[in-house]
Design a protein around this nucleic acid. Structure first.
Lengths: 114, 114
DNA sequence: CGCATATATAACTATATAGTTATATAGCGT
DNA sequence: ACGCTATATAACTATATAGTTATATATGCG
């Protein structure tokens, strides 16, 4: 019973699953289509899809024998929202580079670079 | 030897570590200060910090006996960049809600809602 | 030097994850 | 009903992770 954020980040912490999402960004796909590019077994792909589904990152329908997967973007938006909190740190005047430059200007005597 | 994206997402998939980052967003902090709000042991915090450091999300200095931690925003920016690829899916006309509305308008006979 | 404080590492346990192969389920076509 | 295709589940193995307690390391101080 992981919180949604943890589940989503955890699901994204795997290159195979990120590749699956990248594929789904081009449109719905069946499990077979998603499995094709990978050298791992079909059950392994099914497991990855289950992880993505439980993380709310994909959803699945039913079309004949196939279970088409589609991207569920809302959860990705949540992650982007979480990251927003930190945007000022990489954009504004709060990042390390900035601190470094400020230190240089001040000629901070405690700074090992001085 | 995880790729940087996987390491970062994996590091963020833990509420304790995200709380640590949130604390660091308010400024540098020592290990002890970071550990204080949590009920887990100090070594557990040290491990979390090691994970965050190896993921490139924090860096550490040395001040007397303390090892102050600071936020390293560049990696968070990378994640935001990765997410950007999918922004159109939650903003534009590519998300599920949109598809839902389109289906309603068409009165799609294959749609179980019709 | 010897002690106190801050932090890291070691050794261990419990649980989770990613993969495997073998098998089961579900829906379509005949 | 039968067989084919698509996908899921079971059972298992190997490795990773989060936590624990005990101990080691490093720095500052008297």
């Amino acid at each position: 019973m992981d919180d949604p954020l943890s589940a989503a980040f955890s699901a994204l912490a795997d290159p195979t699953r990120r590749a699956i999402l990248a594929r789904l960004a081009k449109g719905e796909a069946s499990v077979g289509e998603l499995a094709a590019p990978f050298s791992i077994s079909q059950p392994a792909i099914s497991k990855h899809l289950k992880v993505l589904e439980q993380a709310g990152l994909i959803s699945r329908g039913r079309m004949a024998q196939s279970r088409p997967c589609r991207l569920e973007a809302a959860r990705l938006r949540d992650l982007a929202g979480w990251l927003e909190t930190y945007r000022r740190f990489w954009e504004g005047s709060f990042d390390r580079l900035d601190a470094y430059l400020q230190d240089l200007q001040k000629g901070n005597p405690d700074d090992p670079r001085n």
